[in-house]
Design a binder for these strands. Structure first.
Lengths: 158, 158
DNA sequence: GGCTATTTGCATATTAGTTGCATTTGTGTT
DNA sequence: AACACAAATGCAACTAATATGCAAATAGCC
């Protein structure tokens, strides 16, 4: 989302989600709103801590509250680092391209897979090495278990 | 890949990849060949260490060499843990379903996305919560840089 | 069977993310 | 405007996955 594209108001977004308007949350949210692509907790810490006092843990907690409140989408691009992007009407769900060299995450147009493929393979642009489809949810055996006993502490289906 | 399905020979696979046939590599590879689905480094350590002396770090190094040698595919299903599966002709690329409850990774049929969707939504099976498409490679700006100076230690495009 | 490059084990480091607890700060109320 | 309390933040310490340096062990070749 760059400056030429419509975007949300930070205060209003917090209010709508029922989250208190703290300076830390405002700073994080404004960075996310103004970002050209998904950001990591580390990116957000680096950028916001220039302007105010903010702790690493606070970033994680703010991002979790934004995720739970539907303000941002959490993108797990592999490599053990989560990325975050606005989940508002200005930013519909779309695939991401992850550069293994600079680790940036580039938003791709919200097209069909085959259109996306064409877009990717335009000359001189990306060199695609792998396409990974991750579908997350609860599997059959676990769903059955959920009906009877509640989660508890097993991790038994492997 | 279960026992009723054709599978590769471990020794031959190592030889083809130009990797020395050590007992540790054989143990890891045999587990991967015989596994019903993708495994983590932790899984592999647990299983192989019952039969021989093997170090946690060795597992990571073996998996990296297998990945670089094209023997296995590394699947990053999120949650900071990588999964590994055979990348041989018996196991074509396919989507994966990740259960957020037991953390297992289930291989899905190598169909089109819409067929996969139908397969997923059969009654009583999976409850899908998110679908994430990860495309990995090298982005435009990084490809240009690769022509001039070699990689070095920057991580500059963010 | 011995030599050398490769591989392994061990200790230690790093990085992302989490948790418990004390302190601070929004926000609704008087 | 001051107050009170719940919510948010900071700090320290912890976990889990993975990486690295180096010395000891071992596979593959002569």
């Amino acid at each position: 989302m760059n400056s030429s594209i419509a975007h949300c108001d930070a205060s209003e977004t917090l209010k709508n989600a029922g989250l208190a308007k703290t300076s830390q949350r405002m700073a994080v949210l404004e960075k996310l709103i103004g970002a050209p692509g998904p950001l990591t907790a580390r990116d957000l810490l680096a950028e916001t801590s220039q302007r105010l006092k903010i702790n690493r843990v606070t970033i994680y907690r703010i991002l979790a509250s934004f995720r739970d409140g539907g303000i941002v989408r959490e993108i797990d691009a592999g490599g053990g680092t989560a990325y975050y992007e606005m989940a508002c009407r200005h930013n519909p769900i779309h695939p991401h391209f992850h550069c293994r060299r600079c680790d940036c995450l580039i938003c791709m147009p919200p097209l069909t897979l085959s259109q996306t493929w064409e877009w990717l393979t335009r000359p001189t642009d990306f060199s695609v090495e792998s396409i990974n489809v991750h579908i997350t949810g609860v599997c059959g055996p676990c769903r059955e278990k959920e009906y009877c006993n509640d989660v508890a502490s097993e991790r038994n289906t492997r």
